[in-house]
Each structure stands twice: as C-alpha cells, then as structure tokens.
C-alpha cells in the first residue's frame, strides 16, 4: 500500500498562487473557498537585512487526523493510503472537524451545508495522475509521491533534506513536508 505525501520546497516556491487557482478551477470550488492558500512570511528583519518565504498550505493528510476522530457522522475518513477525505453524502455539517483541524484545511460550504477539504485529488491519484496543484506548479516546488517507496522523490527529499512539518508538536503526524532554506 502506498502512503501519499507532499513535499513543498520553499526554496523554489515564489508564492505565485497558481496552485490555489488550479485547485479551485479544476475542483470547481465556490468562489470563496480555498483549499490551499499560499502565505507569505516576511519580509522579516529590518531593511535591508530581510528574509521572506512563502508557505503553501493545504490539508496535511495527517497520519493521526483529529478531524476524523471528531467527526460524529463518520463522513470524514482516512484511506489506507493516508488520504483524508469527506464523504459528502454522510456529512451533517456540524463543523466539529473544522474546529478540530489545526491547519485550517476544512471549509464549510454554505450552499450545501457540508464541509469540504483537499482530498489530494484522489480521483486523479487513482488514475495514476498527480494532483492539480502539483501539476500546475511552474517552479516544481510541490513534489507528490509515495513515502513508502524508497525510490520516490518524496522519500529521497524527506530523508535526504532537512524538512520540517507544521505544528508537529500537536501529534497529528502530518504528511506534508516543508523544506526551507532557513528557519521560519
């Protein structure tokens, strides 16, 4: 079984928001819904000694996802390959998962009354394709793959470079890894 992960190479990310738009357009998201914001940290420091880094966010597909535990309807689920997703039919819109997710990855859809989130483009994955946001990234700053496969690029990056995970201290065990040129 694969274990999907995403590595974001902040040394290459330029904060262009193309991933945000690709996700929204191809997943047909409502205009005010963003699965994958890209934030900018900085410029920090004092002119001219400054730093800046862009941080693309999305669902971390946590190995220990508090959102799934919180979901009273069992609409939120995790597949064996790690992908956390919401079965829209079952979702009652209680927003327990919205509150439980430390990464702001879950967004209520007010039209439907349900909650949505990034599902790693699982239909594409199942067809052997890469997620839209990965595909669209000109800078090749998003690297998607199977972390159980020692030959995969994600495996090599996670094990070869100094990568960090956001809010790791919360014990969610996120599967999105960030490589920085410097500490944020």
């Amino acid at each position: 079984m694969a274990r999907y992960a995403l590595v974001i190479d902040s040394r290459r990310c330029i904060g262009c928001h193309s991933c945000t738009v690709a996700c929204r357009v191809h997943n047909d998201l409502p205009i005010d819904m963003i699965y994958n914001p890209v934030t900018t940290v900085g410029p920090t420091g004092v002119f001219p000694n400054v730093h800046m880094v862009h941080i693309p966010l999305l669902c971390m597909h946590c190995a220990n996802p508090p959102c799934v535990d919180a979901c009273p309807s069992a609409a939120s689920q995790q597949r064996p390959d790690g992908i956390v997703w919401v079965d829209e039919k079952k979702c009652v819109g209680c927003k327990a998962c919205v509150m439980a997710c430390p990464y702001g990855a879950r967004i209520p859809n007010h039209e439907k009354g349900t909650v949505q989130k990034c599902d790693f483009c699982k239909e594409r994955i199942d067809e052997g394709l890469r997620p839209h946001c990965v595909e669209t990234c000109h800078q090749k700053a998003r690297i998607f793959g199977d972390l159980d496969d020692e030959n995969s690029e994600v495996y090599k990056l996670v094990h070869g470079e100094h990568s960090i995970r956001l809010l790791k201290e919360l014990g969610t065990d996120p599967y999105v890894f960030y490589i920085y040129g410097w500490e944020v």
């Binding site: 193309s18 945000t20 690709a22 357009v25 595909e135 000109h138 090749k140």
Partner: peptide, 13 residues
C-alpha cells in the same frame, strides 16, 4: 512550461 501553468493559465476557460 513543462506542464506548469500560472494563475492566469488556469483560468483560460
């Protein structure tokens, strides 16, 4: 572009 598209590229339709 080797497969990439920027924000604007994605809104072509």
């Amino acid at each position: 572009n080797t497969g990439g598209l920027c924000c604007r590229g994605n809104v072509n339709l």
